Amino acid sequence: MQPALLPGDNIIVNKLAFGGRLFNLTAAAENKPIHIRRMPGFQKIKRNDVLVFNFPYPSRWDSIAFDLMKYYVKRCVALPGDTFSIVNAHYYVKGCSDALGNMESQDNLLTLLNEGTHKEISLKGYPHDSLVDWDIRNFGPLYVPAKGSVVIMNQMNAILYKQLIEYEQNMKITISGDTVFLNNYPIKWYQFRQNYYFMAGDKTRDSRDSRYWGLLPEEFIVGKAALIWKSVRPGTSKCEWRRLLKSIE
């Protein structure tokens, strides 16, 4: 998340802004199935909010799972119901003219890609399927599901939303030709049970974000990154006083 956050930063997370989560901590710690409920919040998630969340792929890239002890912090660049694209390494939402994410970092990534000096950068993007030729230069368009929204279950959508549907249903998706099966039953459409978000790190050339692993379920969101309450220079015990109580924007 550089430059918004730097190594050594300690942050305060507002868990009440979007509503605190209620779930069985013991079951979560033991990696047992849990049901997450959310209390009413006093604000809604907006594009460009910096969020803290449980990383949805802690052990396998093909299966969403909840890990109580694995947290990421990234910037939300697309909301439920948005159609998100990356064009020449820059982020866009259909119908939205706002700058999304760190624009300078996106410019720098495009320069590296154009110059061919990106050997250490992984280019292949989600969903990592030979039928979907997306990468971090050009990605999408991808519809970000909102709770209650419906998508046609063709081969393309089955590839894009396989992990989400399997997570919601605890069943397996398989594809045979143009027919999509959920636990061996053919389905022609699917209605999503929750909201999803597209998350991106500000350090665009080196961020393990939704460009690589896909969409974030709403119930994995812990809260909004609010303040840097302390910052210590890496490898030392020296406090970076200039970052004390700095707002995270």
Results as ranks from 00 to 15, higher is better:
residue 132 V to H: 07
residue 137 R to L: 04
residue 98 D to H: 09
residue 155 Q to G: 07
residue 73 V to W: 04
residue 113 L to N: 00
residue 168 E to F: 07
residue 63 S to L: 15
residue 178 D to W: 08
residue 64 I to S: 05
residue 182 L to C: 05
residue 163 Q to F: 10
residue 122 S to L: 14
residue 82 D to A: 12
residue 108 N to Q: 14
residue 103 M to N: 11
residue 145 P to M: 06
residue 77 V to L: 01
residue 191 Q to T: 15
residue 158 A to K: 11
residue 82 D to V: 12
residue 141 P to E: 05
residue 102 N to M: 08
residue 102 N to S: 14
residue 113 L to S: 00
residue 170 N to P: 00
residue 184 N to L: 11
residue 68 L to C: 01
residue 67 D to G: 04
residue 192 F to K: 03
residue 181 F to W: 05
residue 141 P to A: 07
residue 157 N to K: 13
residue 159 I to Y: 09
residue 97 S to C: 07
residue 143 Y to G: 06
residue 135 D to F: 04
residue 132 V to S: 05
residue 125 G to A: 09
residue 165 I to Y: 02
residue 95 G to I: 10
residue 177 G to T: 04
residue 175 I to Q: 03
residue 69 M to E: 08
residue 99 A to I: 15
residue 187 I to M: 12
residue 181 F to H: 09
residue 158 A to L: 11
residue 106 Q to F: 00
residue 123 L to H: 00
residue 72 Y to P: 02
residue 88 N to H: 03
residue 171 M to R: 14
residue 85 S to K: 09
residue 176 S to T: 13
residue 100 L to V: 08
residue 100 L to Q: 02
residue 180 V to G: 09
residue 190 Y to N: 01
residue 68 L to A: 09
residue 187 I to T: 05
residue 99 A to Q: 13
residue 126 Y to A: 12
residue 184 N to M: 14
residue 140 G to R: 02
residue 180 V to C: 13
residue 101 G to L: 03
residue 116 G to F: 10
residue 171 M to Y: 04
residue 193 R to Y: 12
residue 128 H to S: 11
residue 165 I to W: 03
